[in-house]
Amino acid sequence: AEKTGIVNVSSSLNVREGASTSSKVIGSLSGNTKVTIVGEEGAFYKIEYKGSHGYVAKEYIKDIKDE
C-alpha cells in the first residue's frame, strides 16, 4: 500500500540513511518534489530514493495520498 506525498520545505529536505536525525544524510530533495512512501518509522517516512530507500522527517511531507 504505497502512498505519495509532496516535500513541503522552502529550500531542501535531507534524505537520511535511517529513521533518525543522527543518521547519515545520503541526499536531499527540493520543495514540491513528489515522493513515494513505502513505510514509516517513528517520526520518519521511508521513501523510494535513487533506486533504493531513504528516510525523511514526516513533518516536512504534505498531501499524503494513497496510490
Results as ranks from 00 to 15, higher is better:
22 S>N: 11
2 E>L: 14
36 T>Q: 10
36 T>I: 14
47 I>E: 00
9 V>Q: 07
34 K>D: 03
15 V>C: 02
29 L>V: 10
40 E>K: 04
41 E>Q: 09
4 T>R: 08
56 V>P: 00
63 D>I: 13
13 L>V: 12
24 K>W: 05
35 V>F: 03
42 G>R: 05
21 T>S: 14
31 G>E: 12
45 Y>A: 02
62 K>T: 13
41 E>Y: 09
7 V>P: 03
24 K>R: 15
39 G>V: 03
63 D>G: 10
66 D>N: 10
17 E>C: 06
37 I>T: 01
31 G>H: 12
44 F>Y: 11
49 Y>W: 11
9 V>D: 07
27 G>N: 02
33 T>A: 15
12 S>P: 09
23 S>G: 05
64 I>H: 07
19 A>I: 06
36 T>M: 13
36 T>L: 09
7 V>F: 02
58 K>T: 04
58 K>Y: 02
55 Y>G: 00
12 S>T: 11
10 S>F: 07
30 S>G: 15
17 E>L: 11
52 S>T: 12
32 N>V: 05
62 K>I: 15
63 D>N: 14
27 G>Q: 02
27 G>F: 10
30 S>T: 11
31 G>N: 13
5 G>Y: 03
53 H>L: 12
19 A>M: 05
14 N>F: 11
4 T>E: 11
35 V>P: 01
46 K>N: 03
16 R>M: 15
61 I>K: 01
13 L>S: 03
36 T>P: 03
8 N>V: 15
37 I>W: 02
51 G>I: 05
52 S>R: 15
40 E>W: 07
19 A>T: 07
38 V>T: 10
61 I>M: 05
25 V>S: 06
4 T>Y: 06
16 R>G: 03
30 S>R: 14
22 S>R: 13
57 A>M: 15
2 E>W: 06
46 K>R: 09
50 K>S: 08
13 L>G: 03
53 H>E: 07
25 V>I: 11
31 G>Y: 14
32 N>L: 11
7 V>C: 04
34 K>R: 15
44 F>L: 02
11 S>F: 10
18 G>N: 12
52 S>I: 10
5 G>R: 04
38 V>M: 08
3 K>I: 11
45 Y>D: 01
19 A>K: 03
66 D>L: 11
19 A>E: 02
18 G>K: 12
1 A>I: 13
61 I>V: 12
61 I>W: 02
6 I>A: 04
57 A>P: 15
29 L>Y: 03
54 G>V: 03
23 S>D: 06
40 E>N: 05
36 T>Y: 14
54 G>A: 12
10 S>N: 11
13 L>C: 09
4 T>M: 08
24 K>P: 15
43 A>W: 07
44 F>A: 03
13 L>I: 12
21 T>R: 15
22 S>I: 15
23 S>C: 06
50 K>E: 15
22 S>H: 13
30 S>A: 14
39 G>Q: 04
48 E>V: 14
32 N>P: 05
34 K>H: 09
60 Y>P: 02
22 S>E: 14
20 S>T: 13
67 E>Q: 15
59 E>D: 10
17 E>V: 08
23 S>L: 03
66 D>H: 09
45 Y>T: 01
19 A>L: 04
54 G>Q: 01
56 V>K: 00
53 H>A: 13
46 K>D: 02
1 A>H: 15
30 S>F: 11
9 V>G: 13
21 T>C: 07
64 I>L: 10
14 N>D: 13
53 H>Y: 11
61 I>L: 08
28 S>I: 12
14 N>T: 13
58 K>M: 08
25 V>N: 04
28 S>F: 13
40 E>Y: 05
28 S>R: 11
34 K>G: 04
53 H>D: 05
3 K>W: 07
57 A>Y: 12
18 G>M: 11
66 D>G: 10
27 G>C: 03
54 G>E: 00
12 S>R: 15
6 I>Y: 09
62 K>A: 15
24 K>I: 07
38 V>P: 00
54 G>C: 03
46 K>C: 05
28 S>N: 10
35 V>S: 01
11 S>P: 14
2 E>P: 10
44 F>G: 01
35 V>T: 02
40 E>Q: 13
26 I>H: 01
65 K>G: 08
3 K>Q: 08
61 I>E: 01
62 K>S: 11
20 S>V: 05
15 V>F: 02
4 T>I: 15
34 K>S: 07
16 R>T: 13
25 V>C: 05
57 A>N: 12
55 Y>E: 00
26 I>K: 04
58 K>Q: 06
59 E>R: 14
18 G>F: 14
28 S>G: 06
21 T>F: 13
43 A>S: 12
19 A>V: 05
38 V>E: 03
43 A>P: 15
48 E>K: 13
49 Y>D: 01
56 V>Y: 00
31 G>P: 12
39 G>C: 05
24 K>F: 06
1 A>W: 09
51 G>P: 10
44 F>V: 02
2 E>I: 12
52 S>G: 14
28 S>T: 14
43 A>L: 14
8 N>K: 14
18 G>L: 11
19 A>C: 04
43 A>K: 12
9 V>F: 05
3 K>L: 09
20 S>D: 10
21 T>A: 13
62 K>W: 09
45 Y>H: 03
48 E>L: 15
63 D>P: 10
46 K>M: 10
40 E>A: 07
57 A>R: 14
21 T>V: 09
32 N>I: 05
10 S>Y: 06
4 T>L: 09
65 K>W: 09
6 I>W: 08
7 V>R: 02
56 V>T: 02
32 N>Q: 11
58 K>S: 05
45 Y>Q: 01
37 I>A: 01
59 E>Q: 12
34 K>W: 07
15 V>R: 00
22 S>D: 14
62 K>Q: 12
30 S>C: 07
